[in-house]
Structures are given as C-alpha cells and as structure tokens.
Design a protein around this nucleic acid. Structure first.
Length: 798
DNA sequence: ATAGGGTTAG
C-alpha cells in the first residue's frame, strides 16, 4: 500500500468521526460541507467509502432531509448489506412521509436479497396503515409469517395496529388472539381501532374492561377509548373513566383532560364540561378551548360559544393561538345564528391568516353563506376554492335546495358527478328533497337505486328523505313501502309518513298511523302534531283535529307554538266555522302572526266572506304582509264578488310595497323530460297548436256536461267570452292537455304547480277527468288533488 | 384530544 493511500484512509476515518458528531448534534450545514469536500475527492474508488455514504445517509435522515438522504443512499456503489441503514431510511419515511417511499424501499430491500428484521416491520406497517394500503400490508404479513417473526411482540403488535387502523378489525382480532403475550400497546391498538370504526364503540369499551385483567391501562388507552365513549354518548362510561383518571393521576395530561371534556360536551352535560375546562387551569391549550367552544355548540348554547371565543381572542397574545378547528367551529356558530356580519369578519380573518385554504374551514365558510341564505356568495366562494371535495359539493347543493332553488341544486349534483366525485350520504339527503320539491320522480328513483347500491338505505335519515320524495312525487304506495321496510324508524319517519297521507288527503290513514305510532311506544313530538292536525285539516276531520290539539297539551305536555295555532285556524276556517275561529283566536295566548291570519284569509276567499276578509287583511297589513300570497288572496276575493276596483286597488298597493306576484307555473314530466308552462298564456311550447286544439275540443264536451267558466277567477274586467279564453290557458290546463296528448290513455297524469291551483281550473279538471276518463293528479303548493270520475279527493277543501 | 356537508311540519 502506498503512502498516499494510507494518508487518504486516515482522512477517511476523520471524516467518519466528523460525520458522527454532526449526526449527534444534527448539524446539517457542517455535514453538507463535508459532503461537498467528499464529492471533490476521488475517494469513491476506495472500498471503505460505502461506510461514509452510510453515515451521510444517516445524517440527512437525522436532519429530516429525506430527499437528499435517499439520493445519497442510491449513490452507494454496492447495495449496502446493512439492514440497519435500510431500516433507518424506511423509518424516516414512515414517520414523515411520503409513505409510498417507505413501502417502495421495503420491496427494494427484499429485491436485493436483504432479509428484513423485527425492526423493519413496525416501520413499514406504519406506512401501510397511513396509506390504508391493505393489500400491501397483507403481503408483508406473509413475509412476517415466512420469517417466523409473528412471535415477536413488537412485530405482532404492529400488525394488530395496522389492521385496526385500516378498519380490518377481524384480521386485527385474529392476530391479537394468537399473541401469547400482549402488552399495553397491543391492547391500545385494538381499542383505538374499535374507537375509530363506526358502530364498534361498545366493543372498544368492552376491550377496556377486559384488558384490565391483563395489563393496566395507561393514558394512551384512555385517549384511544374516549372518542368511542363520546360517539356512543355514554355518560356512564365517561364518568367512570373520569374517576379512573383522577385516581391514576392522568389529569395532568392535556390530551386526557380535553378528551373527557369532549365526552361531557357530546353527552350534553355542558356544566360538567365547563367545570373540567375551569379545573384544567394552565394546562389548557388551543385544542381544549376549541373543544369547549364545540361543546357549547353541541348543547346549543350559541351565545356562550361566542363569548368564549371572544375571551380566547383576548388571550391570543398569551401564547394561545387560534387554530383552523376553532375557526371552523365559530363559523358554524355564525351559520346557526345566521350572523352574516360576524361570518364575513371571520372570512376576512381566514384570508389574512391563510386558513381559507384549509378545506374544512373553506367548507364551513361555504355552508355559512348558504345557511345565511346568500347562495350567490356561497357559489362565488365555491368557484374561488382551490380544492373542492364531496363535502364542498354537498354544502353548495344543500344551500341551493334549502333556499328554494332545487333546479340549481340538481344542476350542481350532476356537475359533481361529471367532475368525478361520488355523492355521499349527506349529498343524497340534500338531493332527495330537491327531487321531492320538483316532483322529479325519475331523478328521485334513480337516486333511490344509487342509495341502494351504496348501502345508504340502511340509514334512517335517507329512508325518511325517500319517503318524502315518493310521497311528493305522487307515489304514496311506494312511500309506504319504504316506510314499512325501514330498518329502524325514528320520529321523523313517522312524521313524514303522516304528512304524506295528509297532503294526499287521506286523513283516516294519517290518524291510523298516529295510533300505530303510539302503540309502538313512540312519543309524538311537537312536529307530529303539526303534521297530524294539518292532515285532519286537508281531509275535513275537524273533530279529530280539535281532539288531538287539546290532547297535545293535556296528555303529552307539549306547549302549542304559533305553527299549531295556524294549523288549528286553518282546520276550523276551511270547514267554514268562522264563529269558532273567532273565539279560538281570541283565546290564543300568543299574538297571532301573519301565518295565522293568512290561513283565515284563505278560507274567507273560498267562502266569499268579504267582510271578515277585509278585517283580516287590515290586520295583515299592520303586521307587514311578508308574502305576496296574502295580497293575491284579498284581490281574488274582491274579484270573486265583482268588486273590480277594489281588486285593482289591492294589486296597486301590492306593487307599491314591492311585492311581486311570482308567475303561476306548472310542469309535467313525460318520459323523463320536464315540460314547463308559465303564467296565463305560455306560447312557447312547440306543440302549442295541438294543445290549444285539444283544449277547445275538451271545452265543448265539458260544457255539454254542465261546465261553465268561473269568470270570478279572472281578475280583469273584460267580456265573459274573453275570460273563458284566458282561463283556458292557465298553466295547469296546458300541462294537463299535453299529458292527455302524449301519454297513453291508461297512464295517470301528474302535474305540479308552484302556487295553489286556481278555482276554475279545479272545477275544469273535474270535468276533464269525467270527459277523458283519466286519472289526473295535480300537486299544488299545499297538497295533492286526485281527480277521478269528476270528483277531487280534496273534497273541494283546497 | 378539537374541526366541514344531511331527513319531517308551518
């Protein structure tokens, strides 16, 4: 060996020592300097050079410079046989990601014929669970079996943890059962696995009880089990664990304290939650604050939530920071309170702090705008978001639907699918009401199919939405089938089904169902009575309605709200019992609002009770008429008795006060295509000539059977013959004529109208059903009208 | 450990 080589070898040793010290002190800059020096020399020819590369790799791993580490690692001339080095690189990727790299490295290592050891597996399995890479994990499990490493407690615990985190609880359990010795970590893995998995909450709690025969739980056990206890709303277990933590001194741990606080919040024990919050003193961090604000939200204490948030803002300078989670929670408060101005302030803050780009914060902002009724801003924000997921789409869809724009909701639903996003349960829960609103049966039943395929029909909420959709699309029998087959009926299921019978005018079934419900031991709630009384009202069951209104308070302890009073006024006045209505309103403990008076005014209009109608109208004017409907009712009433000037006057006042009459609009679905007719005299439909001929032809037959146009429904003072013609072009008649023309004679006709069906149309359709011998159904703003053989099942109580 | 979208009546 020459002198030169000897010298170089000794510098090489120096380098090794230097690098080791860099690794110890994680001194990246010094290490990089040595790296550069090495690159300039020709040491690579020396056989010990591998060791240096290994040290360099170690250094970069230690300093978290994984890209460089991997680069250096690949430069090592002969693949290192050193398992330790492979392990350290795999470990680094398993901790910091990208996790795919860890798995790739594992396979690369095996490919080079290097045998992984007991340290390799926990790392690579951790990467698999982070990626939910079940198939890769299973393959690795086979490798473990081949190497007979299953008996190693660390390796098998890692397997349990991997399967548990991937939601493969059966596999996790199998490995767990075969372990002859289980340490606390293995138990914890099983418990947190059950905890994460929906519906296995009680299993998690059962394991906690069982483990205590074997090992003593530590604070990680508690942290793992608490989400399960919170989800299960199990106050009893929460209290037990609380006591356990006090005895074992776990309470000094913020994570434990915050977890227990969260349990109490989710169990609606706001006082306990607050007491823990106060007790935690200085160990609180921003998560604790966020959890406390969230607890107030869950318990519906919005003002307290806001107050605490303001308090947090004051503390911000003391090192407590505002997190994305807190911001999202407070935005939900704004949404619930429809506090738009505060919501906008927080939007500004989100922009300044950079939290807007957080997807959850963005989705909450989106939903805040939607819930405040500002769909334009919600949509603008949606378009500006740099990433969107299924939740963003669901939020914008529900925004449109809840603000009455179902068409746009449906459009976004289709757009969601064309952008490759799969609708989720919540999306379906928003789109079904849209189908119901539009009476879009085809879209509705397609959604039903999709829900079945995705397994959503096991969910009560989805079934409830389905019942409502079928009922509002005219398929009461199908609605009942869904109701009968529902896995677990809740109060909403019953209320929805009762309403379904109500809007179809089948009051007797509604009342029967109500009996049935009580027989099953379910307690009706305030909504049930709104549904029930309005069902009675639509079918003229006055006595039953009155009976249950009284029983509601006496037997069920429910204090009537304005809605209940409005229902009762509707029930009595539809039946023409004006004296009784008068007494009823006199005795009301609440000041009647516009809805109550509106119900009465509608009845005045039907019974042509002008004197009372005028009085009621004055009251409505004093309260501020809220909707155009009340003007229309009054004006219709005047024209019904020929007081054209008064009718015109009302319409002028209406315009002056800025109330626009939304045009009457009817639509019919024919082979999946929706045909819409707007206002009195839509001239746009391509088949208009045929439709108009059909109507003229029908008119002749109808007149022969005794029909004469009820000209009082024309609000203009024009010649009778002309009125007949105006009436003939009402949107619902046009839609029905198209139905007669396009659908085969044995098929029922379903037409939907946005407003209440006009009085003349109601009479005319009875005659049409007689002349054509067809079943005609019209769904108007308040209910279904089934016309058959010249009779409507609403009993003219429309 | 905390955080986003959801069914019924009026």
């Amino acid at each position: 060996m020459s002198a030169g080589t000897r010298l170089r070898t000794s510098s090489l040793e120096h380098c090794t020592i230097l690098l080791e010290s860099c690794i110890q002190s994680k001194s990246l800059s010094q290490g990089k300097l040595i790296h550069q020096c090495l690159l300039k020399t020709h040491f690579a020819n020396l056989k010990n050079f591998d060791v240096l590369f290994e040290k360099l790799t170690d250094l970069y791993v230690a300093c978290n410079e994984l890209k460089i580490a991997r680069h250096v690692f690949h430069k090592i001339p002969h693949r290192p046989k050193n398992v330790v080095l492979w392990n350290s690189l795999i470990r680094a990727y398993a901790w910091n990601g990208p996790f795919e790299e860890a798995i790739d490295l594992y396979y690369e290592m095996v490919g080079y014929g290097i045998t992984p050891n007991r340290f390799t597996f926990p790392f690579v399995l951790k990467a698999c669970s982070a990626l939910k890479a079940v198939d890769e994990g299973r393959e690795i499990h086979f490798d473990i079996k081949r190497l007979r490493l299953e008996s190693n407690v660390y390796v098998s615990t890692a397997l349990v943890d991997f399967y548990a985190k991937c939601g493969r609880l059966d596999d996790a359990n199998e490995v767990f059962d075969e372990m002859h010795k289980r340490d606390v970590v293995a138990w914890n893995s099983m418990i947190s696995g059950f905890s994460l998995h929906n519906g296995s909450y009680y299993e998690a709690i059962r394991f906690l009880v069982q483990m205590q025969k074997d090992v003593s739980p530590n604070s990680s056990t508690i942290v793992g089990v608490l989400p399960a206890v919170a989800q299960a709303n199990s106050l009893r277990h929460g209290k037990e664990i609380h006591g356990f933590c006090v005895r074992r001194g776990f309470f000094g741990d913020v994570v434990v304290g915050t977890g227990i606080l969260d349990v109490y919040g989710k169990c609606q024990c706001i006082d306990y939650a607050r007491r823990i919050f106060d007790m935690m003193g200085v160990v609180k961090n921003e998560v604790t604050w966020s959890a406390m604000i969230g607890a107030y939200v869950v318990c519906d204490f919005m003002r307290d939530a806001l107050e605490l948030f303001c308090h947090l803002l004051v503390l911000k300078d003391d090192g407590i920071i505002l997190s994305a989670a807190t911001l999202a929670t407070v935005l939900r408060v704004c949404a619930k309170l429809t506090d738009l101005s505060r919501g906008r302030c927080l939007h500004c803050y989100a922009i300044k702090s950079g939290f807007v780009s957080d997807l959850m914060v963005g989705n909450t902002l989106l939903s805040m705008y939607a819930k405040c009724g500002i769909t334009d801003d919600a949509m603008r924000f949606f378009n500006e978001m740099d990433s969107r997921d299924a939740v963003s789409f669901s939020a914008i869809i529900s925004g449109y639907v809840q603000n009455g724009n179902s068409e746009e909701g449906l459009r976004m639903f289709l757009k969601m699918q064309s952008s490759g996003m799969n609708p989720e349960k919540a999306t379906m829960a928003s789109i079904l009401p849209a189908c119901a609103h539009l009476a879009a049966l085809q879209h509705g039943s397609c959604s039903h199919c999709y829900a079945i395929i995705r397994g959503f029909t096991a969910d009560t909420m989805i079934c409830n939405a389905l019942i409502d959709m079928y009922a509002k699309c005219g398929r009461i029998a199908t609605a009942r089938k869904v109701f009968d087959r529902i896995y677990k009926r809740d109060i909403v299921s019953w209320n929805t089904m009762i309403t379904a019978y109500g809007i179809h005018g089948i009051g007797t079934e509604a009342l029967l169902l109500f009996d049935h419900m009580r027989a099953e031991g379910l307690k009706p709630d305030d909504v049930t009575f709104v549904c029930l009384i309005s069902a009675c009202s639509h079918s003229g069951h006055v006595a039953e309605g009155k009976y249950w209104f009284n029983a509601m308070t006496q037997d069920f302890g429910i204090i009537p709200r304005m809605e209940h009073y409005a229902c009762m006024v509707d029930l009595l006045s539809r039946a023409g019992l004006f004296k009784e209505v008068h007494n009823f309103i006199e005795k009301m403990p609440l000041d009647p609002d516009v809805r109550v008076w509106g119900a009465l005014l509608a009845a005045c209009r039907v019974y042509k009770n002008v004197k009372l109608g005028e009085e009621v109208s004055k009251k409505i004017q004093r309260l501020g008429p809220e909707s155009t409907g009340n003007f229309v009712l009054l004006s219709n009433m005047y024209s019904a008795v020929g007081r054209w000037d008064d009718a015109a006057e009302v319409r002028i006042t209406q315009k002056e006060q800025g109330f626009k009459k939304s045009p009457g609009c009817s639509w019919i679905e024919i082979s999946g295509v929706v045909h819409t007719f707007v206002g009195g005299g839509d001239r746009c439909h391509p088949l208009l000539t045929q439709i108009s001929n059909k109507l003229d032809e029908l008119l002749v037959d109808m007149k022969r059977l005794g029909y004469h146009a009820e000209s009082s429904y024309v609000f203009q003072d024009i010649e009778e013959e002309e009125k007949e013609h105006v009436l003939l072009y009402h949107s619902e008649k046009l839609a029905i004529a198209l139905g007669i023309l396009s659908l085969s004679p044995n098929k029922p006709i379903l037409v939907t109208k946005n407003l209440r069906v006009c009085g003349d149309c109601h009479t005319a359709i009875k005659f049409i059903s007689l002349v054509t011998k067809r079943d005609i159904t019209v769904r108007d703003a308040s209910r279904f009208h089934h016309f058959k053989d010249g009779i409507c099942n609403c009993g003219d109580f429309w």
